[in-house]
Design a protein around this nucleic acid. Structure first.
Length: 261
DNA sequence: AGACGTACCTGACCGC
DNA sequence: TGCGGTCAGGTACGTC
């Protein structure tokens, strides 16, 4: 898309998680795509108009790309928005569960957008370090699992990778955040980075909907230590524990009660 | 203020 | 084969 112009946008429903912005199709049509980037779990499409299209894929969202008009299949079920580019490509936003979202915002004001304002630092960036994390957990009575899922504390971790990181750090998801020693909090930082880097290296985790950008399945799900391994043996060497599942604020947590404290 | 529960959806899967 | 129940990778918001 980068450098090309949006010819036309077809919007097939009012919105997904929320209503689409007013006149979205008109505000996109005719605009050059200056840059594609990412912040946290949001895709950002900077446009020549000075606005940025903000996209979140939710849980089941996907952008599919058809590169040429010579072989352009009809949109399929749940293709809610189709973006036609002037290089013949068509990009469809498909989202069965409709937890995704799209919004438009003046590029210079993105930091004030309700979805982006208040997001924590990128877990792979320099701003995410021991001092930062321990300062954010100080006085917090929520379980560490909930804290790491909170995008205001660190932006980009989801349920799978929090479970995996806590296992590697030997920390129970039930542990109250403020009760962790500074040393143990510090140990979380490199572990979170390692989990994410390995998952990226493996192309992500394909449970059902997720695909890599090329449409192929990711394979990090084969490397899970705890996620979706209820009742299976813990993989810590010499640990005789087995993986338990508990529900915390509506989300499944998988952990080994023997080596995660 | 902070913690928790609920809501938003479809589809896959399971047991009956 | 079909039906009802349950669960899913996220996040905003209401309520206590």
């Amino acid at each position: 898309m980068t450098g090309y112009v949006i010819d036309k946008v077809v919007v097939r429903r009012d919105g997904l998680r929320w209503q689409f912005p007013d006149n979205m199709a008109d505000r996109l049509a005719g605009q050059q795509v200056l840059r594609l980037r990412r912040q946290s779990k949001y895709l950002l499409v900077d446009l020549g108009s000075g606005e940025t299209l903000i996209i979140h894929l939710g849980m089941s969202g996907r952008m599919t790309i058809h590169r040429s008009s010579a072989d352009m299949p009809d949109p399929v079920k749940h293709d809610h928005v189709s973006i036609y580019m002037n290089n013949e490509a068509r990009i469809d936003f498909n989202d069965a569960r409709r937890f995704g979202s799209m919004d438009l915002c003046v590029t210079d004001c993105l930091d004030d957008h309700r979805l982006l304002a208040g997001l924590g630092p990128e877990p792979l960036g320099n701003a995410f370090d021991e001092d930062y994390l321990s300062s954010r957990l100080k006085g917090r009575k929520m379980p560490i699992k909930s804290a790491l899922l909170d995008q205001k504390i660190v932006a980009g971790l989801g349920n799978i990778y929090v479970c995996e990181a806590l296992w590697r750090a030997g920390i129970s998801p039930l542990r109250i955040s403020e009760s962790l020693s500074k040393k143990r909090v510090a140990s979380l930082v490199p572990v979170i980075r390692a989990v994410l880097n390995e998952a990226i290296e493996s192309g992500g985790s394909s449970l059902k909907d997720f695909r890599k950008t090329d449409g192929e399945l990711g394979y990090f799900q084969h490397k899970f230590s705890v996620y979706d391994r209820e009742n299976q043996p813990c993989r810590t060497p010499d640990c005789k524990g087995k993986i338990a599942r508990v529900v915390q604020s509506g989300r499944s947590s998988f952990y080994c009660a023997r080596c995660q404290r």
